[in-house]
């Protein structure tokens, strides 16, 4: 699986929503991802990609769509 698929998989697991159709949908304003889900996301990214994103560095505006998350993961890897 590539980064794309793994991220979508993680998001799907957390929100039970398929984001592959709209990769630019805002995951926060749609209410699908709340603070709790954000923490799950951070832990999953840590586990699957070994990237460490401290909560302080988690700026919602940089992580608010599936596309942006994939971008961030790729740049942090």
């Amino acid at each position: 699986m590539n980064v794309n698929e793994i991220v979508l998989d993680i998001l799907n697991g957390i929100t039970e929503t398929d984001f592959s159709k709209d990769m630019d949908e805002d995951i926060f304003t749609s209410g699908l991802v709340d603070s709790m889900a954000t923490v799950e996301l951070l832990l999953e990214l840590q586990e699957k990609f070994g990237i460490d994103v401290p909560i302080s560095e988690f700026n919602r505006d940089d992580w608010n769509t599936a596309n942006k998350i994939i971008q961030r993961v790729e740049s942090l890897q």
């Binding site: 603070s35 709790m36 954000t38 923490v39 799950e40 951070l42 832990l43 909560i55 302080s56």
Partner: peptide, 21 residues
């Protein structure tokens, strides 16, 4: 949210202190 809630949930989940989300 950023300094209490998220850090606390992060801590609980990372150390698997409570299983049920």
């Amino acid at each position: 949210r950023d300094y209490v809630f998220m850090r606390f949930t992060f801590f609980l989940m990372k150390h698997k202190l409570i299983k049920n989300k």
